Simulated scan of single mutants.
Amino acid sequence: MGLFFFAYRDFTGDADAMLGNQGFGRAHHRVLYFVCLRPGMPVADLLDILKITKQSLARVLRQLIDNGYVEQKTGRSDRRQRLLYATEKGRELFSTLSATQASRINDAIASLPEEARKTVTDFLVSMVDPADRGTLERLNLTAPLS
């Protein structure tokens, strides 16, 4: 568990520093990550993925919208539906945050044998609650690390 703690601390550290410069935190990063991953994602899906309350999401989402990182549109077929899209500014921040984290992951697995990449993916998937593994597949998050 100690190794996992240190790996997570360092994995999030660079992004946390950049987010802090914007007045944001990890909650903002998680929202931006999934909005960029799935443009047009309904708010309801985001709530389900993040397993947070509407109130928690509303605060974070309002800050991202007010600062020009995310925009919210009404659904075409269901006018009650709120669909989320990253703006250019949001995609740029996401790209910067993702580049530092992807670099850390790629550096960590670079010295591993090819078959170890599947082992790493299998390990991470096994850490996810079995009830949420279908969501991983829907979001295409179970592909081997590269």
Rank of each mutant, 00 (worst) to 15 (best):
residue 127 M to K: 02
residue 114 E to M: 07
residue 130 P to S: 09
residue 132 D to V: 04
residue 74 T to S: 15
residue 65 I to A: 03
residue 77 S to M: 09
residue 101 Q to W: 08
residue 119 T to S: 02
residue 107 D to K: 11
residue 119 T to H: 03
residue 71 E to V: 08
residue 75 G to A: 01
residue 79 R to I: 03
residue 114 E to A: 08
residue 78 D to Q: 05
residue 109 I to Y: 01
residue 65 I to Q: 08
residue 124 L to V: 10
residue 113 P to H: 05
residue 96 T to I: 14
residue 61 L to N: 02
residue 92 E to W: 07
residue 63 Q to M: 12
residue 121 T to G: 05
residue 69 Y to T: 00
residue 76 R to C: 00
residue 113 P to E: 08
residue 119 T to C: 05
residue 85 Y to M: 07
residue 104 R to I: 05
residue 68 G to E: 02
residue 64 L to E: 00
residue 124 L to T: 04
residue 72 Q to R: 14
residue 62 R to C: 01
residue 120 V to Q: 06
residue 93 L to W: 05
residue 120 V to H: 06
residue 67 N to A: 13
residue 135 T to N: 02
residue 83 L to K: 11
residue 82 R to Q: 12
residue 69 Y to G: 04
residue 101 Q to C: 11
residue 101 Q to Y: 07
residue 101 Q to I: 00
residue 84 L to P: 00
residue 108 A to S: 15
residue 112 L to I: 07
residue 90 G to K: 00
residue 59 R to K: 15
residue 89 K to R: 15
residue 84 L to T: 01
residue 116 A to H: 09
residue 102 A to T: 10
residue 87 T to H: 10
residue 121 T to C: 08
residue 133 R to E: 03
residue 63 Q to V: 04
residue 106 N to A: 13
residue 90 G to I: 06
residue 71 E to S: 11
residue 67 N to P: 01
residue 95 S to I: 04
residue 76 R to T: 12
residue 134 G to L: 14
residue 122 D to A: 13
residue 58 A to F: 12
residue 122 D to N: 14
residue 105 I to Q: 01
residue 103 S to N: 12
